[in-house]
Design a protein around this nucleic acid. Structure first.
Length: 743
RNA sequence: GCAUCCUUAGCUCAGUUGGUUAGAGCGUUCGAUUCACAUUCGAAAGGUCUCAGGUUCGAAUCCUGAAGGAUGCACCA
């Protein structure tokens, strides 16, 4: 046999910038990321078990950050591993429209450039601008995603606002409405006066703030507040029924007292919501602008009156303060109360929480609004025959083990969240998003001549995916102006990407998906909602496993942010150290659910490792004694090969239980400390001075250990391993990507 | 307030059911290097495993308590 000459391609050192684009091109050309291609080319058996992951879709208008990079690395490892194990493996890419974030970005840009607001442009024009912006910026995130080596099947790419996904959202809404799960109602919601939209409970962040805390004389009582501007309408005074201090007062008793704008009559309410420990134990309530107060008001059927409008302006009830903005009015109101002698005390340094919209920063003002909600406590019929509530369904998905959350401790957090879950407000007043498929017959139906009798039958509101027509008159139905919470469409993601509501082959083959892999910060927003949607619409869980990774932080454990200037850009890292090194730096040391502190040094270290592997290969290929034939293996070399296979078995187990950090670390040490430092070193002696049979045996062993190492490392560092594979004299498959996993 | 997690070398972290001398990467110090290695190799220093009790033949690991840190949820009128 011809001695194998080490290919010239083995320039030293390993240069990722040169190899990576070639590998990307080769992979793309092969189409192996598409399971249909794998089956057609005989790489995957048609009846193989399936393994699928949907990529948590990044914002279309965003750029790749380390959080994405970490997610892509983890998922690609799982995907490549299973593909090599022979599973019918599918990883679906997509992007998210990120309604509020995208709209505010475009609005801001337009305002900067043209000094126009969305109202100046109108809805249609704004949509055009947003679509153009999305179209322009989506290639950025897609190309960046590819650079990580992600073996996504781009032929199945989905966008939350594309035609198919839009249809899925409409279909889902109609089904849920028909089942009585979606209702419209006047309820207290979180209103963002800045963005002029409602926001869900989960999208709210609390920030500590220091404000003055005022004590007022409210008749014989002492009441406290940080928000005097809400107090105009307060005509109920609430105390705990067991509070001995106030036992002389009875529920429903009326008291005349002097208040901000003159004398009023207040009513005593005894309710357990009043905390005896807090302040005087007595409070007045503002049902229109506080969730708790609203509940109390509903319990006792009290009057509810708005004090503040959608823009934060005081209404008629404020009397002389009417028309003023709450921010400015506060000081004036306090001043007036002072002169009336109604203030008993002021604490200047009162620390309390203020609710802000995490998407845009407006301070939340609870308001009562007519909105669309999903009822989480209503018992309904599920496709699998069960009758239960959405809450029960969400709990059962996990408690039954049909969906397993890793790390396990998040299961408790998940249950706890469900306990506290209230009806989900799904309507938003922003323009960019999926429209609510509800149609109003306005004005009232005026039947065509001869159909006057049908006026009673005409419907004023119709829920339908497509625009309805009135049977009795020529009036056009007007669509509900609101859009849906972005998480409504995200909740459908595991199956809308597979073609639902059509009954596609993909859906049958790949749903439920194998794993949903995402950051723990998104457990409630997304994971829980997917379980809800899939449960109701498909009668099955959306995924068998949830794997939650930690967040990527800077070297000091701080969140990466522009303002701190501590962002490590994955693309810069790829350029400097290669995608393989970038991937490994995000995997090793990142135990499940724990945050990872990333520094540039880490990345550099793994570049050296890629180079190490490259050089081991060169040694193996440059030192053929009798050529890499099928020489007889001696006992010692057979044992070396068995050792490599033992490592393979251990690594497989670690990957199976999501301990990618351990698997990667173990492979790293096997290749560096064992293979390079010991086996290769000792082989130098054998190859130089050993018997010819020993030389041949060792040469074969080296090649086999190298091949096993390449395969094992491929999911973790696909580029360098594939680049090496391409140079091997004989190989079992044209690409390492579809080589057989060693067991 | 309720809950979860964390505290191990200078830094970042492993240490899976309790079991010899507690490990890795980076950093530090010293030495070697025409030999696959734009580097690598060898060696060294560095630890009261946060603290205090307890269980045990044996505890970084299990239990109780304390301190510090992080996070989630609820929430204050």
């Amino acid at each position: 046999m011809e001695p194998f000459i080490c290919p010239e391609a083995f320039l030293k050192p390993y240069n990722p910038n040169e190899q990576e684009p070639r590998m990307l091109e080769a992979w793309e050309k092969s189409g192996y990321a598409n399971p249909d291609v794998c089956i057609k080319r005989g790489v995957t058996k048609p009846d193989a078990e399936s393994y699928s992951i949907v990529l948590p879709p990044p914002n279309v208008t965003g750029t790749l950050h380390m959080g994405h990079a970490s997610m892509l690395a983890i998922e690609d490892i799982l995907i490549r591993y299973h593909r090599m194990r022979g599973y019918k493996t599918l990883w679906i890419p997509g992007t998210d429209s990120a309604a509020i974030a995208t709209q505010s970005k475009v609005e801001t840009d337009i305002y900067k450039a043209e000094k126009k607001t969305r109202h100046d442009l109108g809805r249609e024009e704004l949509m055009k601008r947003i679509d153009a912006f999305v179209e322009e910026s989506k290639t950025t995130i897609i190309n960046q995603t590819k650079k990580m080596g992600s073996s996504l099947d781009w032929s199945r790419y989905a966008y939350t606002m594309d035609e198919k996904r839009y249809a899925a959202v409409m279909g889902a809404f109609v089904r849920m409405y028909d089942a009585g799960l979606i209702y419209r109602g006047n309820r207290i919601v979180n209103w963002d006066p800045k963005l002029q939209t409602t926001v869900s409970d989960d999208e709210i962040e609390y920030a500590e703030q220091k404000d003055a805390f005022y004590h007022f004389k409210y008749g014989p009582f002492d009441i406290g507040t940080v928000r005097p501007e809400t107090k105009f309408g307060d005509k109920y005074v609430v105390m705990h029924p067991d509070d001995a201090r106030y036992k002389e007062y009875t529920h429903g008793q009326q008291i005349d007292l002097e208040w901000i704008n003159g004398p009023i009559t207040a009513t005593i309410i005894k309710d357990e919501a009043a905390d005896m420990e807090f302040g005087s134990g007595v409070m007045t309530i503002t049902p229109a602008h506080s969730a708790l107060d609203f509940e109390i008001a509903q319990r006792h059927k009290l009057d509810v009156e708005r004090v503040i409008d959608d823009r934060g302006i005081l209404l008629d009830i404020a009397g002389e303060f009417k028309g003023q903005h709450i921010k400015k009015a506060r000081a004036l109101i306090v001043e007036k109360l002072k002169t009336k002698g109604l203030i008993s005390k002021i604490d200047e340094d009162y620390v309390h929480n203020v609710a802000i919209n995490s998407r845009g920063g407006g301070i939340i003002e609870p308001q009562i609004k007519l909105q669309w909600f999903i009822n989480v406590n209503k018992e309904v019929q599920f496709p699998d025959g069960k009758r239960q509530t959405l809450k029960e369904r969400m709990r059962e998905a996990v408690s039954s083990g049909n969906t397993k959350i890793t790390p396990e401790r998040f299961e408790k957090i998940y249950y706890h969240w469900i306990e506290n879950l209230r009806d989900w407000c799904i309507s938003r007043q922003i323009w960019f998003g999926h429209r609510i498929p509800v149609w109003y017959h306005e004005p009232r139906c005026v039947p065509k001549p001869g159909r006057e009798a049908d006026v009673e039958k005409s419907l004023m509101m119709i829920v339908s995916a497509t625009k309805p027509q009135c049977e009795f008159c020529d009036a056009e139905f007007m669509q509900d102006p609101d859009t849906l919470d972005t998480w409504f469409s995200s909740g459908l993601w595991t199956f809308s990407t597979l073609g639902w509501p059509e009954d596609t082959d993909d859906l049958k083959t790949y749903h439920p998906t194998a794993v949903l892999e995402t950051g723990y910060d998104i457990l409630f927003f997304w994971v829980a909602r997917m379980i809800l949607m899939s449960g109701f619409l498909r009668g099955e869980v959306p995924f068998r496993n949830v794997y939650l990774h930690g967040l990527v932080r800077d070297g000091q454990g701080r969140k990466m942010s522009k303002s701190l200037g501590n962002i490590i850009d994955p693309l810069t890292m790829i350029e400097k150290y290669g995608a393989d090194a970038t991937r490994l730096s995000l995997i090793v040391g990142a135990s499940p659910g724990n945050d990872l502190k990333l520094s540039e040094d880490r990345v550099r270290g793994y570049k050296n490792f890629a180079n190490k592997l490259w050089n081991i290969t060169r040694f193996v290929l440059e030192n053929p004694s009798t050529g890499p034939g099928q020489a007889e293996l001696n006992a010692e070399d057979a044992e070396l090969i068995r050792e490599a296979h033992r490592i393979a078995a251990e690594a497989s187990i670690n990957i199976d239980v999501f301990r990618l950090d351990l698997a990667a670390d173990q492979l790293y040490h096997f290749v560096w400390d064992r293979f390079a430092a010991e086996i290769v070193e000792q082989s130098k002696l054998v190859l130089k001075a050993g018997e010819p049979t020993a030389q041949a045996s060792r040469q074969r062993a080296l090649l086999e250990i190298l091949i096993v190492s390449l395969k094992l490392l491929h999911p973790f560092m696909p580029f360098v391993t594939e680049a090496i594979w391409q140079q091997l004299p004989k190989k079992e498959s044209d690409q390492l990507m579809v080589a057989k996993w060693p067991v």
